[in-house]
Design a binder for these strands. Structure first.
Lengths: 225, 225
DNA sequence: ACGTTAGGTGTACGCTGTACACATGTCAAG
DNA sequence: CTTGACATGTGTACAGCGTACACCTAACGT
């Protein structure tokens, strides 16, 4: 009799699971993502997911891979500096589309092949610019998580999170943290602005690092291990 | 009669709870810490903790505060650069004593007064060096999480964590990630060494940033907002 | 002597990841 | 056509989590 059931649900697949997870996290945030809610989303019982992903950890791995897949390659004619910069800013654009990816990436301990591939591409940009393996090693460390297009939020709390406590009165802030207050105001032409231009801050720090790399490279720097 | 009970347990207090939590995390790791296990540790029922801390989040806040309290002030006669460097390296030493603090700090969204006080002290070092509020704002962003004494682990997986999958064969690594392999080897005089000198990498990146800050400061740089 | 309160207890709820046994539907081999 | 294997989805169950809420008990100020 086949089945004229109400919902002729397409069969699951690893790819469908991962895509649904990405969309769910885009919509509801990383913290809201759970195996059970994702199963609900797919109209399926939680354990069904485990036929397609080993566990939650490897699902997140796959989600990160999906983000990395969105990175755009650097223009072919660029020098090392432009290549690295363009690649990292492309990562940053992908991150803007998937804000949860920051938390996901920070929580990873293992590197998937896709992730290693991305890091390899950065390394090759430095090599193409004549960087030694030694210097490249150190500059990759110095970039750190910045290769994923994010730097830690210094002043802006995570979006959508209300402070847990009243914390401090304005008077106390003025008295105890005048410096923080001053620099918070100094960054904005509009002194009532509440949030920083994160893109600017990101490029600012990135360029300082790239400048430093260039200088070390020019003078043939190497660590004296 | 009074009570000659077997365990004349000292009464709980917020400080005792926090200290026990710090010791537990030192010993068992951040992931292992739960309200229930901590209560066990203190010979008390889980809900008893809630008489002293509002919830798990504010317990972690207090734990981070405890770490920040261990930071040592910079020598009084140092210039801005030495002061900042010494302060941050002091934070790094505290982090070495409390490895869980990295995860804890990364998971914070609100800043406690103690945390703001630490940031304020850094800001004041820059001010004392003649930095404008504007430049100080940007350099604080550029430092990012580095002010807490850590940079992201690029290559070393979290200590004590076994890889979940065999991942890739050595042949595949050689073929697909020659650059990563090269830089992994280049950093160590001993090519069989498996881990990086994280302290070196940390200072390396920190000094590049401080160099950059000094240069911008010397030329009176300001963002053209 | 008595009401208030601070601190510890016990129970309970809803949430999480996932182990395990089971049902079903598809397909290859006999 | 039958049969057995395999892939896929289901259902139940368990241990763990944070924490709300009602309760008890001991100490203390009046």
């Amino acid at each position: 009799m086949s089945r004229g059931k109400s919902a002729p649900r397409p069969p699951l697949s690893r790819e469908r699971v991962v895509r649904a997870a990405v969309e769910f996290a885009d919509r509801e945030g990383y913290a809201a993502l759970s195996m059970r809610k994702l199963a609900d989303e797919l109209g399926v019982v939680p354990m069904a997911l485990y036929k397609h992903v080993a566990d939650r950890e490897s699902l997140v791995d796959a989600m990160v891979d999906a983000v990395v897949d969105e990175y755009e390659p650097a223009p072919a004619d660029a020098d090392w500096r432009e290549s690295v910069r363009a690649t990292i800013l492309s990562a940053r654009r992908a991150l803007a589309r998937h804000p949860w990816a920051r938390e996901a990436i920070e929580s990873r301990t293992d590197r998937t092949p896709a992730v290693l591939g991305y890091m390899e591409s950065l390394v090759q940009h430095f090599f193409a610019g004549g960087f030694s393996a030694n210097l490249t090693h150190h500059v990759m460390h110095a970039l750190g998580n910045r290769i994923w297009g994010f730097s830690p939020e210094m002043f802006n709390p995570a979006p959508g999170a209300a402070p847990r406590e009243p914390q401090l009165s304005p008077e106390e802030i003025v008295e105890r943290f005048p410096g923080i207050l001053a620099i918070a105001r100094a960054a904005h032409a509009d002194p009532t602005a509440t949030s920083c231009d994160e893109d600017f801050e990101f490029s600012f720090a990135l360029d300082i690092l790239l400048d430093g790399f260039a200088r070390l490279h020019d003078r043939g720097w190497t660590s004296a291990h």
